[in-house]
Design a protein around this nucleic acid. Structure first.
Lengths: 109, 109
DNA sequence: CTTACATATTGACATGTATCAATATCGTTG
DNA sequence: CAACGATATTGATACATGTCAATATGTAAG
């Protein structure tokens, strides 16, 4: 039972020629995760923290969204590879993965 | 009758602190335009042309989509400011606006 | 084990959108 | 003006998704 592929797709620069179907699917999924104002708010809010991370509970009030909705958005970004999560006791902390943003900048060149 | 605003929103780096509501709405609209495999295919296809542009008709066959669907995707990217359009006779040529991509790279920093 | 709190999941609903066939619009050419 | 080809718009349909209330799960503390 082999894994389908080591998931090395992604990131040829968009302007450097035609992308494969895998590349466009992968890139589009990430851009779609960024295509929501609430999620961009979350990212900028995380980046604004001195520790560069927030626990999920700290996002509910400033965003004015319900806890399930916040949880949903965090999941979307986590699955897109934009966020890392770490459990510390009862709380779960999220932080931005700067490598992923760098990868996107690369793809947009 | 004043215009609502000169549309100077956008582009503070995402990681530099909290974004305004206008900024996230504007940025999200652009990312949403990129969040579709077919549209990324179009961009890479345009970039692959020696002239850095295509007429709309040239996209239908390689993408395997209907003409109305291609027209729809082009409109989405045009309205997001990613593409420029120029009519030459019967044909309409689209090209990528590299400034917009540069702006996005900036926003992702 | 039970209570309390943080987070995730489920279900329901409304809205958005990708797609195509059919049709309309627009330029060019006769 | 009429005919033709390229592009855009409309209408219909299927599917995706943002949102919340209700509920489940998970962890720490008594």
């Amino acid at each position: 039972m082999k894994r389908s592929k080591p998931k090395a797709v992604c990131c040829s620069p968009l302007l450097a020629g035609r992308l494969t179907s895998d590349e466009t699917a992968h890139l589009a999924a990430i851009f779609r995760a960024l295509g929501e104002p609430a999620r961009l708010q979350m990212l900028s809010l995380i980046a604004a923290q001195p520790e560069q991370e927030v626990c999920a509970c700290e996002l509910v009030e400033p965003l004015g969204l319900s806890q399930p909705t916040v949880s949903h958005h965090l999941k979307v970004m986590y699955e897109a590879g934009l966020l890392a999560r770490e459990r510390r006791g009862t709380w779960i902390y999220y932080r931005i993965l700067p490598e992923k943003l760098a990868m996107l900048r690369e793809a947009l060149s």
